[in-house]
Structures are given as C-alpha cells and as structure tokens.
C-alpha cells in the first residue's frame, strides 16, 4: 500500500508537469489575443505595426527562443511568479490572494450544507424507497441537476432582489466580511451553489445506499433486532461512505468550482470566478491562465485525496494492480 501511495504521489507530480507543459504549448501555439489588441491600439495611435509587435514581444519576453520561454514559464510556475496582470497593474498572485476569500466565503457553507443534507436525504430516500418522500426527493434532485446555475441566480435576483427587495441586486464588496449585511447578500449565491451540488449528492448517495439496503448483513442486523437508526448509521452508511467519500472530493468539488464561477459573474461577487471572467473580457492572458490553472490544481489535489481516501477506507482493494 505504501508503494501504491508513493506511486500515486509521483503520478500527481508527473500529471501536474504534463498539464503545465500542455498549457504552455497551447498558449505558445495560439495567437495572443492581448498582443493583437496592443498592436491594434499602437497602430491606431500612429505607431508602426512591426515596431509595435516587436516592442510587445520584447516586453513579454516573446523574442526569446521557445525553450528559454518554456524554462522561464515552468520556473515561474513553481516559484509562484505567475506573471503580471496588465489590467489590474499588480502581480497575478496578488490579485488571486485578494479574490479568494470572497469565493471561500460562500462556497464553504454551500459545500458543507450540500454534503450533510445531500447524504442524509439520499440515505433516507434509499431506506424509504418508493415512498412519497422518495419521489419528492427524486423530483427535487432532477430539478437541481437540470436548472442552469446562472439562470437560477438571475431568477433569485429578479424575485428576491427586484420584486421583493429582500436582497441587494449586486454584491457590495465594501461591506465588512463579518457583518449581518454580508450574510444577507451571500444567502442567494450560497443557495444557488448548494442546489447544484446537493442534487448530485442526493442522487449518488441514494444509488450507493440502495446497494446495501437489501444486503445480507443488513437483513441479519434486522433479524438480530437492530433498530432502523442503527441499521442506517452502522450497516448502510459505513460501507456506502467509501464510494461517497470519493464523489465528494472529485465531483462535488468540481460542481462547486463551476457553479461558483457562474454565480460570481451573476451576483458580482469579486471572487476568483469574477476575476477570471474580467480577465477574459479584458484580454489579460496571464490572469486568465492563472485563474484556469488554480481550479485545475484543486482538481488534481482533489483526485489525489480521493484515491488516498480509497486506500484508507476500503481494505478490500488490492494494490498489486492499478
């Protein structure tokens, strides 16, 4: 098992390296949208086309050979020197440091609520299969996975912001973090992110728990007089926890990352998603790259934890093979 963990860690490093290299290749092979806009601007102001292009390339270090650029890029990535954001006039890492608390502020409660409630409801559905509550929960889950996050966010703003006036239409970032007002304006985004992740969680935990509801050991427990609470918590939840813990890290994290990106754009929360969105609109290449790579790294680490969790939680897997 130690050998497996060591191999898994090594693979994480290799995968990160390959992904960084692939990204560099992509960036190098594609036309630089920022260069185009810079050159166009210089030409409009009466500058020479060739000269503008050259000066841009010099400023960004693009006149160096490809290998040199690749080396600088990789060293920069490792040493957290992620470049300079032109539109924000600050290092990319600094912009990210300023933005991430806003994302964490509502994504954490959303993640916790959806995990606890989602698993609980899923277990309940599985043990009360084909009951009215089960059908209601399934209908709700279908609703949750089908509704587009950004549209649901807009509906929230329309109904609770514009028509009822309960929440502000846009996020006010000048409000202190730990204040009632901040909580009030974060309720709607939290709900939107929660809905999209709770639905998948419910469906998955229901399906997983169903495999154990009629298992022999659960029947035995029942025959021996274990009450339903004990059966659910000790005999169904425990084995179901293994597959559940993996979806939790891998898939739910992914759903939260995506829906928070869209939610931030809709509600105007100055977190990582909006930072990335603005960078795309304003053609800030370094910032776009960084804000795409951060969720990717989170996903890589999430995958690593997912696999390690498996090794700890499930003694049945043999590690002789992949």
């Amino acid at each position: 098992m130690k050998w497996y963990i060591a191999r898994r860690l090594a693979w994480t490093v290799v995968a990160t390296f390959i992904i960084l290299s692939l990204t560099f290749g992509l960036m190098a092979a594609s036309p630089d949208p920022q260069a185009a806009s810079y050159v166009a601007q210089q030409v409009q102001e009466g500058g020479d086309f060739e000269e503008a292009q050259e000066s841009y390339e010099r400023a960004r270090g693009l006149d160096q050979p490809l290998w040199e650029r690749y080396k600088n890029y990789m060293i920069g990535m490792v040493t957290l020197d992620w470049g300079w954001s032109e539109t924000r006039s600050q290092p990319v890492t600094e912009a990210i440091l300023e933005a991430w608390p806003y994302s964490v502020m509502y994504a954490t409660p959303a993640l916790i609520i959806s995990t606890v409630l989602g698993v609980a409801i899923g277990l309940y559905s599985a043990t009360h299969r084909n009951s009215l509550e089960d059908y209601a929960a399934s209908a709700f889950a279908f609703f949750g996975i089908s509704i587009p996050d950004f549209w649901f966010g807009i509906l929230m703003i329309l109904i609770f912001g514009v028509w009822l006036g309960w929440i502000p239409i846009y996020y006010h970032s000048d409000v202190p973090w730990f204040s009632l007002q901040n909580v009030q304006q974060l309720i709607a985004p939290t709900l939107v992110v929660t809905l999209s992740s709770i639905a998948s969680e419910m469906r998955f935990s229901r399906a997983t728990a169903l495999e154990y509801v009629n298992a022999e050991f659960v029947k035995t427990a029942k025959a021996k007089g274990a009450d339903s609470w004990r059966r659910v918590t000790r005999h169904i939840f425990r084995p179901a926890l293994v597959p559940l813990s993996t979806i939790l890290v891998g898939d739910i994290l992914n759903i939260v990352l995506v829906s928070s990106y869209l939610v931030e754009v809709v509600f105007g929360i100055p977190g990582l998603g909006q930072l990335s969105y603005k960078a795309i609109i304003q053609q800030d290449v370094a910032l776009v790259l960084a804000t795409v790579l951060i969720p990717t790294f989170i996903a890589i680490v999430g995958n690593l934890f997912q696999d390690l969790a498996y090794t700890v939680l499930d003694p049945r897997i043999s590690y002789g093979e992949r």
Partner: peptide, 8 residues
C-alpha cells in the same frame, strides 16, 4: 491526463 483537467 485528459480527465484530470476539469472539463469546464
């Protein structure tokens, strides 16, 4: 590698 990259 392809699956490591989050789709979105």
């Amino acid at each position: 590698i392809q699956l490591t990259f989050p789709t979105f």
